[in-house]
């Protein structure tokens, strides 16, 4: 492919049972593009964690994924509460998720660390009270 492809998703913040549908759809598209399965898995896990975070913390948001010849870029934007202490949020095990979220299997404080672990680049732009934009890249 010479021209980059862009995919856009709106994430609904109301329904936890539907969280992950965008990541699932993206994973299928990457499979159709014939990308390496390790690359696909990395993108799927990182995007899924981000999507879950949007539903848990920010009442949804938007995800844009761009696929070029050399990399896959995911931009996740929300207008949620923002992250007051990014350094703390990046620590494994640190979580501000409600007990209800933990009972659903998330909120173990692994979301952001996982996103970093499975991507080659990650940048967090956040303002308390205004929202968060996370940009992640996986090299092909």
């Amino acid at each position: 492919m010479s021209q980059a492809l862009t995919f856009r998703y709106e994430i609904d913040g109301d329904d936890f049972t539907r969280a992950g549908e965008a990541s699932s759809s993206m994973k299928n598209k990457l499979k159709q593009l014939g990308l390496d399965s390790d690359v696909i898995r990395k993108v799927a896990i990182a995007m899924y964690e981000g999507e879950i975070n949007m539903v848990i913390h920010a009442d949804g948001g938007k995800i844009t994924v761009t696929v070029s010849d050399t990399e896959i870029t995911m931009v996740l934007s929300d207008t949620g509460p923002g992250i007051p202490d990014v350094e703390k949020a990046m620590q494994e095990g640190y979580s501000t998720a409600r007990a209800e979220v933990r009972s659903l299997g998330f909120g173990a404080g692994m979301g952001l660390p996982n996103m970093k672990k499975y991507t080659d680049e990650m940048q967090i732009d956040t303002t308390v009270g205004r929202g968060t934009t996370i940009t992640m890249k996986v090299y092909i």
Partner: peptide, 10 residues
């Protein structure tokens, strides 16, 4: 819950 299946899928 459904997220178990989604996690497995990823």
């Amino acid at each position: 819950n459904p997220q178990v299946v989604r996690t497995a899928e990823m």
